[in-house]
Amino acid sequence: MKASRTTINVAPQSSFRRTDGKHVLIAGPCSAESEEQMLKTAQQLKNLKGISVFRAGIWKSRTRPNSFKGVGTMGLQWLEMVKKETGLHTACEIANAQHAEEALKHSVDILTVSGRATVNPFALEEIAAVLKGTNTSVLLNNPVYPDLHLWIGAIERMQQAEITDLGVINRGYTADEQYIYRNHPRWDHMLQLKELFPELPILCDAAHIAGRRSLLYPVSQKAVDLGVDGLLFESHHNPARAMSSPQQQLMPQELDLLVNAIETKVELEGTNELVKQLDELSQQMDSLDDALLELLLRRTEVSAKLGIYQKTNIKGAPESVSWEHVFENLMKEANEVGVDKDFVQNMFQVVREHYAHTYRFRA
């Protein structure tokens, strides 16, 4: 997408804009679990330098039906108590209009719109209708799919709802198991959005991109170097007992060390040169995968044209491609050079499906 600057009506005193070189820092548990857990974690976070917002997951959108789905509305009561006891602003994630209504009833200061909602224009319009005229602070997560247009559409819908205290969160996109981070950060999407909407505050959810504690520093530092206005972390007074995502949550004391390291650019032990190399290699693999797929698709196109010339009187998809023969040769070569066979098989299937789709509609 070619970027062109777009004017957006953002409040001059936005809650999410970095001021005096200080980043907006939001932290709290992945999931609200109990009143005790919320208050204990919040009291410890309150004492950390720079933490201004306490966040907690109230509703958890789970892929599988029997996973922990969050405590629901009860957690909003605990958020109210946290605000009263600590003076911290509060935030929670919403995924539909009902969530938005409930959060507003319980005076949640910042609503973060789930990536599963950002990808759904119908859900976004319903949420926008609830928020219109409320002066609510809103953060839009990137959609779960790597489609920049969906993210832009979500911003535009909030604009139409006259939301001016608005920002976005880069929390990355789902990555395969071989990728170093839990979510692919797609820094290029974030930078394109920054070019499109230069006045729009951009935050980074370091926890969901990193996926584990050991990678929080490089993700956070990279985001800061790219000019984000703030960072989101997950913090729990006892991560080992957390009901969701324990591997990416920090104790408040650990978070304090991390924030200090980011501010001073003092790299934490075990996260410096090795992680940088792994990150660079992962990016190289992404580029190579794209190039390989492009070559395979081009080869298929050439093979199809050859088939058309050979069978000019036959309508429909050319049958000159012997898929079994191609697959057999690919697997043989993969075995000889030590390439992962599952990867080759997956790429082969993508090319074959593309071929079938393309020539079914050209017939």
Results as ranks from 00 to 15, higher is better:
336 E>P: 03
363 A>W: 10
85 E>N: 05
256 D>P: 00
244 S>R: 09
254 E>S: 09
220 S>R: 01
56 A>D: 04
42 A>T: 03
133 G>P: 13
191 L>W: 04
109 D>G: 02
164 T>S: 14
68 F>D: 07
72 G>F: 11
106 H>V: 00
3 A>R: 09
163 I>T: 06
280 E>A: 14
179 Y>Q: 11
171 R>I: 07
322 S>Q: 12
340 D>F: 08
106 H>M: 09
321 V>A: 01
100 A>C: 10
68 F>C: 07
296 L>T: 04
215 L>M: 09
22 K>P: 01
233 F>W: 07
176 D>Y: 01
132 K>Y: 10
29 P>M: 02
95 A>M: 12
168 V>K: 00
28 G>C: 04
90 T>M: 08
96 N>Y: 05
60 K>T: 05
71 V>G: 06
350 V>L: 13
32 A>H: 04
99 H>F: 04
53 V>D: 05
176 D>C: 08
144 V>I: 15
72 G>D: 10
22 K>E: 13
244 S>W: 00
66 N>F: 10
286 D>V: 12
73 T>R: 11
354 H>P: 04
278 L>E: 03
32 A>N: 07
114 S>P: 06
293 L>W: 00
134 T>D: 01
344 V>C: 01
286 D>R: 09
360 R>L: 14
224 V>P: 01
137 S>K: 12
216 L>P: 00
110 I>K: 05
152 I>S: 11
223 A>V: 08
62 R>W: 06
156 E>P: 00
147 D>Y: 05
338 G>S: 06
146 P>E: 10
145 Y>T: 13
70 G>F: 06
6 T>N: 11
90 T>A: 07
274 L>V: 14
60 K>V: 05
252 P>L: 11
73 T>F: 03
104 L>E: 01
225 D>T: 11
232 L>W: 01
189 H>W: 02
146 P>A: 15
186 R>W: 11
25 L>Q: 08
169 I>K: 10
38 M>T: 12
233 F>V: 04
158 M>Q: 08
352 R>P: 01
290 D>Q: 15
97 A>F: 02
